[in-house]
């Protein structure tokens, strides 16, 4: 089992109606891609934002990640839209 602290920002925070949550996932959910699949399976806005061709970014412990990045136990995983600062 892995405990993950999830954070959502900007448009995704509004779509999901929450800024953070803690999830406990079975060990077979090992990568960022697995987590995204799990979240998209919730349906509704989750599937719409994470399960379609919409673009989003994921950071693991505050470093930009890819679908292959492993999920560290007790990790901070942030999901957010492409950035628009500057």
């Amino acid at each position: 089992m892995r405990t993950l602290n999830l954070l959502y920002f900007a448009r995704l925070r509004e779509s999901f109606g929450r800024e953070k949550e803690t999830v406990v996932l079975p060990a077979q959910y090992a990568t960022v891609g697995d987590l995204v699949t799990y979240l998209a399976s919730r349906g509704g806005e989750w599937e719409n934002e994470l399960g379609s061709d919409k673009v989003f970014r994921v950071a693991v412990n505050q470093v930009l990640a890819t679908a292959d990045t492993p999920l560290p136990d007790q990790g901070e995983i942030a999901i957010f839209p492409p950035v628009t600062g500057g």
Binding site: F9, A59, L64, P81, V83, G86
Partner: peptide
């Protein structure tokens, strides 16, 4: 620095 910041620093404008 600006090109990098615009695409990699986690800021969002509403």
């Amino acid at each position: 620095v600006m090109d990098y910041l615009k695409t990699r620093a986690p800021f969002w404008k509403k």
